[in-house]
Write a protein that binds this DNA or RNA. Sequence first.
DNA 1: CGCCAGGGCCATA
DNA 2: TATGGCCATGGC
Length: 217
Amino acid sequence: MFIDLIDIYQKLYSVYNIPDGWWPGDSNFEIMVGALLTQNTNWNNVEKSLHNLKNLLTPISLYDLPIEELEELIKPSGFYGVKAKYLKNLLEWFKKYDFSFDELNNKEKDELRNELLNIKGIGKETADSILLYAFNKLSFVIDSYTIRMFSRIGLNIKKDYDTYKIFFENKLPKNIILYKNYHGLIVEHSKKYCKKKPLCKNCFLKNLCLFGEKYVR
DNA sequence: CGCCAGGGCCATA
DNA sequence: TATGGCCATGGC
């Protein structure tokens, strides 16, 4: 089964109206915090937490905030106990670089990624989300949606983070906006049609989707 | 009421 | 390497 990633991108792009860059947020720091809070969590709940933090969305404010207060403010986005610790771990790392995105941007992409992965609470998806959307590094984000959607379309590769990441990065033009938008389009499409209980009947990609044929009627 | 959400860590085998 | 339990709130 041949999968044309560009063709699928263009189809998604023509259907969904997403802003260029896709990830919502008024600052790189807010994007970084949101990337952590959204771990296995509906974005609607993340927005509630970000709203609670609205006057504290600077690295220094959050660094100085007692962890008990941080827990209270991020409760709506769930797993608040571990996520508060994870955020503190991230801030402790960020402080070593004077909370400076510019300073960290001097690092090579792979080095920056490895440093993020060494923070307890930052796994591959969160690291890649921060790299791509907060640091503007060319690092494609894979999530459960990506694997579910493309395996249903017929992409016959191992359902594994690294395998998917390499596949996408090898086949796509090295373009930051394309990376940002593509992941965003996969998320938007998956939330609407390619859910665990799929809505293939109304899905405009059902012609391409082997999985969908069984659910058309 | 049950299912699911823009994961990751850890213990176990 | 690969599962399974755990972390938890809120929308539907």
